[in-house]
Design a protein around this nucleic acid. Structure first.
Length: 933
RNA sequence: GCCAGGGUGGCGAAAUUGGCAGACGCGCCAGACUUAGGAUCUGGUGGAGCAAUCCGUAGGGGUUCAAGUCCCCUCCCUGGUACCA
């Protein structure tokens, strides 16, 4: 069987237009001050989460979000915006390094090859990226600024007074190293022996590495940390005004995990040691019948009595041998050991035993808790297992006999607060504790400081050297600090990074050596969106003007400055930096997968706030509007994977149906944010739609060449056509704004159906009844063979193109396609199917010239409400809520008139016969409901 | 366990403020044109019934003239999270 004929010549016109865009660069957005920049236009920054260029190339998940943003970008350009729509490469990363370990090929080469493949694929889909802004995080011109930003962080501290990052020079304490936002600490870290590196908490899933699924163990190591916890409060608060999915905001809030409570001091009996615990329920203090320390808590050694030392030591050894996975796995059964020591409950003055147990974590709160078994499930389980006292101190509301209340209630058995409701009791006991100097109100966060160093080769080296056991920054002039050449990228196995192998590079001077760690992959993605504003800047990470323009929009007057920035005169009265004004700050639209909800999006917000505080940026938040695309499943409804053999390659789809069909199908599948399965027949359906658009304008001549159809004529659209046109303009515009691309395409299908099927809406009335066999879409050959029908003057559109052209469609005939309607459709469809519409626009312009003749320069059409209204409307007549008839009435019909029509309707009367009418509900333009019984 | 988001034809899905459920597409059925059709066009297509009509938005209750939409309970699916005191 010969190759199937293409429904329209996308295989020719798509490469043609891609070449045109390559050459003319219509999507390049000049910066303020550059030639071609138009300051009168508003800006719109629409961003994709840039890809890691993996070896397997693009899959259909990438183009889903990319198509959505491309549609918005093209739409906004047509609407008159200066649109920043860039793409780049998250190019540092583990896969290229592991490939290097296996094959010896340098990661840089692998990365370059992968980028080339990704880029080719993206271009084949016809995305309107501004390729002049392409960046790669592994490019020294890029990562020199990643290193520079690290130095800004290193040279800063968080001033609790102003609640901002400030230059370290403003710190007046003894040792600046205690407060730097980038600091070194020896901490128990997630060490992955297989990967030979440590991982951030966020990169460990169920005790295994997120990448590769290898076991991860806790191990104390000296690491670089970033003090993200200082920003916990602001990272939560400034989330509120952002236009993000509520679910993602919640995910971040939960990750940061703010909880308000009190620190309470317990004195160890017969000693003057104080153990502070954190509790969210200070009102249950009287019910604290024991105390538990984390096994790692340093106080344990000091407290443990002689008789218990062996047991304690054994338990601690047992706990430390467990991986995270085991520790959480064994969570079902509580375990612990008594230290032999006692503490005094500050409220009741009771002696309570001090235990250690692994259900208390060293990393949260103070690493010690008060056990209130009556009102905490975990404490109860523990107390029951070890026979500890249980004392009820909260009575649940409503039921005086119930026990084990973990929610709010009324305090009992608590002399200071008896009878108070939980909120009141909390307040009173906290005030009492503060008065007595026994405690204080405290806020705790689950968020930990960000473990920022990795023992890898393929990442940004730290711009840090070590001298006499102390770290210091290298000069900015020494940036970029590029990784040394290596031919062995394997982990050393000792925890020492592979960079240690580059002996010459490591030796910085007689007395100093370089830091051997590299930054994690997140580093580049923390600020790449800023670099896009000004990718070629050799002086700064981003130019002030470019940053201000693309992140904030055109500034009005000279007063537009970074209001919240350091330095500030009166820190005492300084409010938190005001959150971004809705709709006016940062990236206007950011689209990507949910997998980055707490990692990339939290880290990037953190860096952004530091840079904002230091006066480098104009907005406090980077991403104003965030949308997550849903994942695309295989045709079998399973996750796409090699294992199931259900992976769809975009290039295969494009080869068979074209890029426009691929784009439109991805958008037509269903709501962007929803998970949905792929369907090849679905692609075919969309491809048919595009072919109908093509044939609306084009027909084949005798030679089998596509030429502009004779039926396309400069005629006025009919009233019915105008309604379809303007309904479509309205729907498509609103749907693109709302990112409801599937319904926008559906409406354009309705448009095309209306213009291709005379029987539907385009030609109403008996006089325009379709002629059998003379449908517009009939192919030329068939029409010629259609005998007498072909001779009929009724035949339009089909064209019966005789070689000499004697049989012409009559201009203005009822089957004509008005040029204006076609043009409107082409502009509306252009963001979705840019190649097809560009070609048709150009072809149309040869017979019906317009200026300018570039579809990319056309204005987005505006709908006119006057064409949407109807003269008549169909009303449903209901009896007791069931539709019994429909009548068409003038739009002007009044409610009483409608009621009369309904009452007199024979069908209605049939159903209310013998019943009494109780009520008649009239909904104008919709229905009349007669209620009778 | 907890948190979030979902359950609508054979399938993907539509459906302002509660107001004619199933737009649009796929698939399927029939027809037209064809040497042919996996092309194109036309018509049909939620279920049951000859029909009038009845039943239908996970299941059960409720509010209402009217519920996919609002309220209560239950079940199922997807994602996140996991002793955070």
């Amino acid at each position: 069987m010969s190759e199937r004929r293409k429904p329209y010549p996308f295989d020719l016109l798509e490469p043609k237009w891609q070449a045109v865009w390559e050459e003319r660069r219509p999507f390049h957005a000049p910066n303020p001050g550059e030639p071609g920049f138009d300051p009168t236009r508003p800006k719109y920054y629409v961003l994709d989460m840039f890809p890691y260029p993996s070896g397997s190339g693009l899959h259909v998940g990438h183009p889903e979000g990319y198509t959505a943003t491309d549609i918005v970008a093209r739409y906004k350009r047509l609407c008159g915006f200066n649109v920043l729509h860039p793409i780049g490469w998250d190019a540092f990363g583990l896969p290229a390094e592991q490939y290097a370990i296996r094959t010896g090929q340098h990661p840089e080469i692998t990365t370059r090859e992968n980028i080339a493949r990704f880029k080719m694929q993206l271009k084949r889909i016809g995305f309107s990226y501004d390729w002049e802004r392409e960046i790669s995080t592994a490019d020294p011109d890029f990562f020199r600024w990643t290193q520079w930003i690290f130095l800004q962080i290193y040279h800063s501290w968080f001033n609790p007074e102003t609640r901002r990052a400030e230059p370290i020079s403003t710190y007046t304490g003894t040792d600046p190293d205690d407060v730097r936002l980038a600091f070194v600490a020896t901490v128990p870290v997630n060490w992955c022996p297989e990967l030979g590196t440590v991982l951030a908490n966020e990169e460990v899933i169920d005790g295994k590495s997120e990448v590769g699924g290898f076991p991860v163990v806790k191990r104390p190591m000296r690491q670089w940390m970033l003090r993200i916890t200082a920003f916990a409060e602001r990272l939560i608060d400034e989330l509120d005004p952002l236009d993000w999915p509520e679910g993602i905001k919640l995910l971040q809030r939960n990750w940061i995990g703010k909880s308000e409570g009190a620190g309470v001091d317990f004195v160890v009996a017969e000693e003057d040691t104080i153990i502070t615990v954190f509790t969210t329920r200070p009102d249950t203090l009287y019910g604290a019948t024991y105390m538990v320390l984390a096994p790692e808590n340093p106080l344990v050694d000091q407290l443990t009595i002689k008789e218990q030392r062996d047991a304690i030591a054994a338990y601690r050894a047992q706990v430390s041998a467990k991986s995270d996975l085991e520790r959480t796995d064994l969570a079902k059964e509580k375990s612990g050991v008594f230290t032999g020591a006692y503490a005094i409950n500050p409220a009741s003055n009771e002696r309570i035993p001090i235990w250690i147990a692994d259900y208390v974590l060293m990393g949260y709160g103070t690493g010690a808790i008060m056990g209130v078994p009556a009102h905490d499930e975990r404490d109860l389980e523990f107390a029951q297992k070890f026979g500890l006292a249980i004392l009820e101190v909260v009575q649940p509301p409503g039921d005086a006999t119930a026990t084990g209340c973990t929610g709010d209630g009324v305090a009992i058995n608590s002399p200071l607060i008896d009878g108070l409701t939980t909120p009141d009791a909390k307040r009173k006991i906290a005030a009492w504790l503060e008065e007595q100097g026994l405690g204080r109100r405290t806020i705790n966060y689950k968020l930990r400081d960000w473990l920022f160093s990795r023992q890898r080769y393929w990442g940004e080296p730290f711009p840090i050297i070590w001298r006499d056991g102390k770290h210091e920054a290298i000069a900015e002039s020494e940036l970029p600090l590029v990784p040394p050449p290596l031919d062995d990228f394997k982990p050393t196995g000792t925890g020492e990074p592979p960079l240690a192998r580059a002996k010459d590079w490591v030796r910085y001077s007689e007395a100093a050596t370089r830091e051997l760690n590299t930054m994690p992959q997140w580093a580049g993605s923390c600020w790449y969106y800023l670099r896009f504003c000004d990718p070629g800047n050799g002086e700064r990470f981003v130019g002030h003007e470019a940053e201000r323009y693309w992140m904030m929009g055109p500034t009005s007057g000279a007063g537009a400055t970074n209001e919240g920035a350091f330095p500030r005169q009166s820190p005492a009265e300084a409010p938190l930096p005001s959150a971004v004004r809705p709709g006016s700050g940062g990236v206007d639209l950011y689209v990507g997968g949910t997998e980055h909800a707490v990692l990339h999006l939290l880290y990037a917000r953190f860096w952004h706030k530091v840079l904002f505080d230091l006066g480098h940026l104009s907005t406090a938040e980077p991403f104003q509007r965030l949308v997550n695309q849903g994942i695309i499943l295989g045709e079998d409804g399973r996750k796409m994977s090699k294992r199931w053999g259900n992976v769809i390659d975009p290039l295969d789809v494009i080869a068979e149906y074209g890029a426009d069909a691929f784009r439109c199908y991805e958008m037509f599948m269903g709501p962007l944010e929803q998970m949905k399965p792929w369907s090849m027949t679905g692609v075919e359906g969309v491809s048919r739609f595009l072919a109908r658009v093509w044939r609306l304008a084009m027909e084949e001549n005798q030679a089998g060449e596509w030429v502009l159809s004779e039926s396309v004529a400069e005629v006025e659209p009919s009233r019915v056509q105008l309604k379809v046109i303007h309904t479509t303009i309205k729907k498509v515009s609103e749907d693109i704004e709302a990112l409801s691309f599937n319904t926008a395409i559906a409406q354009m299908m309705i448009f095309v159906n209306a213009f291709t099927s005379p029987g539907r809406t385009a030609s109403p009335g008996p006089g325009n009844a379709p002629v059998p066999g003379a449908g517009f879409g009939v192919s030329p050959k068939q029409s010629s063979a259609a005998g007498e029908d072909a001779e009929s003057a009724q035949v339009r559109g089909g064209g019966t193109p005789s070689p000499a052209g004697e049989t012409r469609a009559l201009p203005g005939g009822d089957r004509s396609v008005p040029v204006s309607a076609l043009r409107t459709l082409l502009v509306l469809l252009h963001p979705f199917a840019p190649h097809l519409t560009s070609e048709l626009w150009e072809t149309l312009g040869r017979r019906f010239p317009v200026s300018p003749n570039e579809i990319t320069d056309q204005p987005w059409p505006e709908y006119r409400a006057e064409f949407l209204v109807e003269d008549e409307v169909e009303i449903a007549l209901q009896v007791n809520g069931k539709v019994r008839d429909r009548v068409t009435v003038p739009i002007t019909a009044t409610n009483p008139e409608l009621e009369t029509i309904a009452r007199n309707n024979p069908r209605v009367q049939e159903f209310i016969a013998g019943l009494a009418i109780r009520k008649v509900v009239v909904i104008p333009k919709k229905l009349v409901n007669v209620v009778a019984n």
